[in-house]
Design a binder for these strands. Structure first.
Lengths: 185, 185
DNA sequence: ACTCTAGACGCAACAACTTTGCTTTAGGGT
DNA sequence: ACCCTAAAGCAAAGTTGTTGCGTCTAGAGT
């Protein structure tokens, strides 16, 4: 039972903070549970009991970092909004650290909950863009169509083929999507 | 330097075999390096030196299991070939064990080589299907188009949204791809 | 056929991490 | 104010990960 301000919340916050600090200081691969525990002012057994192992902890932290901090920018029309968002998404996710976070989020995730959360973040952002377009009276494709046509190809390449990804590819995916869905329906 | 029949090759084979046996017997999550080593008739240090850690070893084994064993079946036309292949792909990859293999392949893979291999397997299979279509005189889309339109959405959902995946979805992706690429160009 | 050499493996000791039972404490409910 | 529960601390025991050194196999050169 995690109440804000309670001890559990404080421990979680200090452990997460410790992970972030140490990731920056010694690098993700050098992290160990005892190291994180010491920095967080906690005993290792606390971490093992709450998270199970290092991977699950890293997965939690990674999801937190992958949460968008601001709604997508408004550029005045659907094509611009989606293009800008896709470029930024690619930028963040394709960087070595972004890729590492995505992998961590996927890895230490027995039930798929964290991965689902990542996907939901992206879907939410897309949803905002599409709703905005509809508000303007523009036609707009379905969220799922955008996930299949833009997000999935980007993520597939980020994970499986890290080379040969650039902003032009992201733009092309958006353009083709909007053309083939006829600019909305 | 691994020569066929050499000692290195024998050790690799027996270690891989041990992993497969133990995965079946005690489950993937219960595997440990010492356990695998004992079953393989090898010392743990051998495994640590060759693979580094359990994840990299599991990644190797996973890639091996994800290699297609037969070329895609010939059903007489592009749409049928691609649909059948996509359904089978989904079937294999979306099962709990399939998903676990994909995750293992991705995870213990510092340089992305194993992940790239998985993607290449899929691309090869698709390529065979497309080449066959061209041989018949059918039009066929580009491999990359199929990867973006079919493989990527399937894999994205397998990894990030394990629920709500079925053969109908795979069929729909293929149909929409072939319609929008106009049955080839 | 023989020797030579590089690399890989086994062994064993050590260090680090992980697990677990028991005790203690902080927060929330009555 | 008091109790009750869940979570954290502590510490010991068990496993796993690491490393130096000696040995041996398999292939290459003569």
């Amino acid at each position: 039972m995690v109440r804000p301000g309670g001890r559990s919340a404080r421990v979680q916050a200090s452990v997460h903070a410790a992970v972030r600090e140490l990731e920056a200081e010694v690098g993700r691969d050098a992290l160990t549970v005892p190291m994180v525990a010491q920095r967080a002012g906690v005993t290792p057994s606390t971490i093992y009991r709450r998270w199970g192992d290092l991977q699950e902890l890293l997965s939690d932290v990674a999801v937190e970092r992958l949460r968008p901090e601001t709604p997508p920018e408004d550029h005045g029309d659907l094509a611009s909004d989606l293009t800008a968002w896709a470029e930024q998404f690619l930028d963040e996710m394709a960087s070595p650290s972004g890729r590492a976070y995505v992998r961590d989020a996927l890895l230490g995730d027995p039930d798929g909950g964290n991965a689902g959360q990542c996907s939901a973040y992206a879907a939410d952002q897309v949803q905002v863009i599409l709703a905005r377009a509809l508000d303007r009276g523009e036609g707009a494709p379905d969220v799922e169509t955008v996930m299949d046509g833009v997000v999935a190809p980007l993520m597939y390449r980020i994970l499986f083929r890290p080379s040969g990804l650039d902003a032009a590819y992201a733009r092309r995916l958006v353009t083709e999507l909007l053309n083939s869905s006829g600019g909305g329906q």
